[in-house]
Design a protein around this nucleic acid. Structure first.
Length: 834
RNA sequence: GGGCUCAUAGUCCAGCUCGGUUAUGACGUCGCCCUUACACGGCGAAGAUCCGGGGUUCAAAUCCCCGUGAGCCCA
């Protein structure tokens, strides 16, 4: 398809090689098949340091439709892979699916109208797995449709025995190093889901609440002094767990109260009044009751003041025995009941205020959480923030501003990470407990353990010799799994059958780890990114990657966060099917400014199609001119740099090649930061408004050979092809399908080498390449403006004089444009002689 | 309360790092046009007190300060 000048017509034209009038998105599936057959994106491992590993986020199939923002996100990750590949990197782009965790359990409960805890565990796990398979296949269909250049058919899953065995192995190693420990302490508890929640997974919502002002009787009231103080609380059902009342030292209403004792109403225990800075005079009455546990502040106060906790609420989410007559009620019911009781018994309540209160809820299930003391496994993180900060300093963030998100989070970490969950669909905690001495037995790493259904591998307890074990029923927080994705993809597991795990390092791991880049969304910096740094460093002593690429959120067309509950989520699949992946991807690149939130609207996506049409028609036009010799491979680049060829170039040719150089430079700068917005905008602007609108129009006559010498004609044709040759490659990471198609029809080397195996235009990739040989001219804004303005002026004049564009016209060509005179004369049919 | 980000035509956005033309382009609107790449197009037109105030400067959308409003994150 390249080279040769057969079929040239008398006027230097031949029939266009491309005849179809428009880009047909239906061709995408054909192109995808070609890539598959030719294994275009095959990764062949090279020695250490020469592999470019992308720690792709494994998406979670939590329900349909898959968010269009996520589709945009994965398209951009693919652009990273393609950019890296076309920059000469040896790209390893694994695709995974995250399948552990709460959402699928909730989805499955709803789908089958069952309750997890009332269902046989094995059966429930199977149902979850089936749900995941279904949702996953839809997701994979979208990923394939988007043209991801990773191998979705070889995707990894976080719930396979191999992956889970690795999660368990890392846990076992950390347990033995003392980085994991068991502790009984107050914890965020989602009693609806029946599980512990980490700080990172708590969200806050404003909810209406009753602020009850209660009279607490003062002991030994002084002469003429008041006999009570008012304590305001939104949680009167926790009166039984009250162990102190605090006031602010600066609050005059309570001067002299500190150190005295009050009687808690209803339950009548006597508690001290203490001064503490956390009591705010302006909230409620200024006096606050400290209970185990109304909120995180209570937890801190109990610890700080050395108070003895009372378990007011049990793991079943109901009031415990300590609540006396209210035992067995839900906290909400107990609250209503106790308010009623207090009102009946007279003077306890002074007033009830309706307020809105920030209530902590579980981020995923949206259930209100309680703080309940219980025993959980913890990963040490408190003493570790300096090391994380140190690693983060070394990692390049794209864009840099998002590094701050991580630093802010590091500032606010206040406790170790609880990792045990009372759920089913997750990686089991590999532990057994000796029923006699209570010691925890953790087995050897190497395979996938399921303690709730499996005999303890140890015959007898290493500590007491007893042989009666109870298998651990809990699972891990899902971040325990996903935070080791760099270890898994780099082969830390060794990839043995049946979930066997080789012990840590091996050849594959040595060559691949640390990975190169972690692309991910902004909202999981404090979870996935942070936990990955923590976990991978603990396992390897090395940061898991050298670059992090952070993308913003997809918002709806009004700038609101998309969610299924709001009903403003857009299903990406029909959009992609109707408009094609390239349209979606070009919209995505040209609309999503690097790192910022972006708005999704179907109308705007549709309008991106226009540029692809333009590109198509420009190519169709150029396909009617012979591709100069050596047009394949680096031919067009050579053409730009080739001195003799340059000799015959006209001023207009040099001008557009200079503009092209400026474009290439801008794009390269964007691509070097994995910013696709800049190249997309720049290429569109250049191709549409400079190249097509002005250059092509100017040299059309010359390219036809009308009134020009053969050398001049060839110069135009060469230049036209040189520009398109570069533009296609510049766009290839963003719109892989149309560029591949046009490349194959026009420029591909014999054998049909994919455009995606070519290099981005500009510098040669090899380190031993010669000095830069860009065009001598570079971009010339003044000339471009002069040309644009002149053309506009002529068009306007013809219009106002009611002339057709091909009609002749007499006018002067400004001095600045004299070098382009002959092209301009041909273009506008200027009739008067100079 | 703290942090991050943003504010430019009806809508979206470029330009701001490093101050200097008539402030970029797209969508939408209107008018004219089938000119042999493109009517999924071309040309043209209308549309912006560059959020407000102050400062620096010969010169500010751009730099500095003070506000206001919005979004997100954390307390």
């Amino acid at each position: 398809m390249s080279g040769g000048s057969d079929g040239d017509g008398g006027d230097g034209r031949r029939a266009p090689a491309i005849t179809e009038k428009a880009w047909n998105p239906g061709l995408e599936s054909e192109i995808r098949r070609k890539w598959q057959q030719e294994d275009t994106y095959r990764f062949t491992m090279q020695e250490k340091g020469r592999n470019y590993t992308i720690d792709t986020p494994p998406p979670y199939p939590s329900g349909r439709p898959w968010h269009i923002g996520a589709a945009a996100h994965y398209s951009q990750i693919d652009m990273i892979a393609r950019t890296a590949r076309m920059s000469g990197k040896n790209v390893y782009f694994p695709i995974g699916i995250d399948r552990n965790g709460l959402p699928v359990e909730i989805y499955t409960e709803k789908k089958h109208n069952i309750r997890m805890r009332e269902t046989d565990r094995t059966e429930f796990l199977e149902m979850c797995s089936d749900s995941l398979d279904e949702l996953e296949s839809e997701m994979v269909q979208i990923m394939d449709g988007l043209g991801l250049s990773g191998d979705t058919s070889a995707r990894y899953r976080t719930d396979t025995p191999q992956y889970r065995a690795l999660t368990q192995a890392t846990f076992i190693k950390m347990w033995r190093n003392g980085d994991v420990y068991l502790a009984n302490r107050p914890n965020n508890y989602d009693w609806v889901s029946g599980t512990t929640i980490a700080d990172a997974e708590i969200a806050y919502v404003e909810m209406p609440a009753k602020l009850v002002h209660m009279r607490f009787k003062l002991e030994a009231p002084r002469e003429g002094g008041k006999d009570h103080i008012i304590v305001a609380s939104t949680r009167p059902e926790l009166l039984c767990a009250c162990r102190a009342v605090i006031v602010n030292a600066d609050d005059e209403r309570y001067s002299g109260c500190a150190g005295r004792t009050v009687t808690v109403p209803v339950t009548n225990q006597k508690v001290p009044i203490l001064e503490h800075h956390s009591a705010r005079a302006e909230f409620g009455s200024g006096a606050v009751m400290v209970c185990s546990y109304g909120d995180q502040n209570d937890v801190a106060l109990f610890r700080e003041l050395g108070l003895e906790e009372v378990a007011a609420i049990g793991l079943d989410g109901r009031m415990a025995d300590a609540a006396g007559p209210y035992a067995g009620l839900r906290p909400k019911q107990a609250r209503a009941k106790i308010i009623e009781d207090m009102q009946e018994s007279g003077d306890i309540i002074s007033r009830v205020e309706e307020i809105t209160h920030r209530t902590p809820v579980a981020e995923r299930s949206r259930n209100p959480i309680e703080i309940i003391p219980m025993e959980e496994y913890y990963v040490k993180q408190m003493d570790y923030t300096d090391r994380i900060r140190e690693m983060a300093e070394e990692i390049t963030f794209h864009p840099p501003m998002h590094k701050q998100v991580l630093f802010n989070w590091l500032e606010s970490i206040s406790m170790d990470w609880p990792i045990s969950r009372r759920r089913y669909y997750g990686t089991e905690i590999p532990a057994w407990r000796c029923q006699k001495c209570g010691d925890t037995y953790v087995p050897e790493p190497g395979r996938y353990y399921r303690p709730w259904t499996e005999e303890c591998p140890a015959r007898e307890c290493p500590k007491c010799g007893a042989s009666d074990f109870a298998g651990e029923e809990r699972t891990f927080d899902t971040w325990m799994d996903s935070s080791i994705s760099p270890l898994f993809i780099c082969g830390y597991a060794g990839g043995g059958a049946d979930g066997e795990v080789a012990d840590g390092a091996n050849d594959r791991f040595e060559r691949l780890y640390p990975a190169s880049i972690r692309p991910q969304a902004k909202d999981i910096v404090r979870t996935w990114l942070y936990y990955t740094l923590l976990r991978c460093d603990k396992m390897t002593g090395t940061a898991p990657w050298s670059e992090a690429w952070i993308m913003g959120y997809g918002l709806d067309e009004h700038g609101l966060k998309m969610s299924k509950s709001k009903g403003n989520a857009i299903d990406p699949l029909p959009v992609i099917e109707r408009l094609g992946a390239d349209t979606f991807r070009f919209w995505n690149a040209s609309e999503v400014n690097h790192g910022y939130d972006f708005r999704c609207s179907e109308q705007k996506i549709e309008s991106a199609k226009k540029f692809l049409s333009k590109l198509w028609n420009v190519s169709r036009f150029l396909s009617s001119f012979e591709v100069p010799d050596g047009g394949g491979d680096e031919g067009a680049d050579l053409l730009v740099q080739d001195k003799p060829a340059r000799g015959s170039l006209q001023d207009a040719d040099r001008w557009i090649l200079g503009e092209l150089d400026a474009l290439v430079e801008r794009c390269r700068r964007g691509y070097s930061e994995y910013n696709f917005f800049t190249p997309a905008i720049a290429v569109r602007e250049f191709t549409w408004n400079v190249f097509a609108a002005h250059y092509i129009e100017m040299v059309k006559g010359r390219a036809y050979g009308m009134g020009f010498s053969e050398g001049e004609r060839r110069a135009a044709v060469r230049t036209l092809h040189a520009v398109l040759h570069a533009v296609l490659r510049l766009l290839a990471p963003i719109t892989p399908f149309i560029t591949e198609y046009l490349w194959q029809r026009m420029y591909a080397a014999p054998g049909g080498k994919s455009i995606h195996l070519e290099m981005l235009p500009g510098r040669a990739p090899a380190p031993d390449s010669g000095p830069d040989t860009g065009s001598p001219d570079g971009g010339d804004d003044a000339t471009t403006r002069a040309i644009t303005e002149f053309n506009s002026m002529v068009w306007n004049r013809k219009k106002s004089e009611n002339l057709s564009l091909k009609d002749g016209i007499a006018l002067e060509i400004p001095d600045a444009l004299k070098p382009f005179e002959r092209d301009l004369r041909a273009m506008h049919n200027i009739t008067n002689s100079g």
